[in-house]
């Protein structure tokens, strides 16, 4: 059961992968199917194990991540 939800602004994400590298639950990965207008593969959630720790959002250089805690 997911405790958190990560929303990624795919328009401004530059696919740098810093969020992917710091996620303790390996919830994120760079998309292999999507590509944005700037040519980057944005990050996306690949599992439901998010604990809303906000590590990904703290490392995101482009403020592309919003984290919600689920009740």
């Amino acid at each position: 059961m997911a405790k958190g939800k990560v929303t990624i602004n795919e328009v401004i994400c530059k696919g740098c992968g810093l969020c992917v590298s710091v996620c303790p639950k390996k919830v994120l990965d760079l998309s292999t199917t999507k590509i944005n207008a700037a040519g980057y593969n944005p990050a996306e959630m690949v599992s439901d194990d998010c604990i809303a720790c906000t590590s990904c959002a703290k490392m995101c250089p482009d403020c592309a991540i919003t984290v919600e805690k689920l009740d």
Partner: peptide
């Protein structure tokens, strides 16, 4: 559901 992290209003 509570937002725990979002972009600050002090950035455009």
């Amino acid at each position: 559901m509570a937002v725990v992290f979002e972009k600050t209003k002090a950035l455009t």
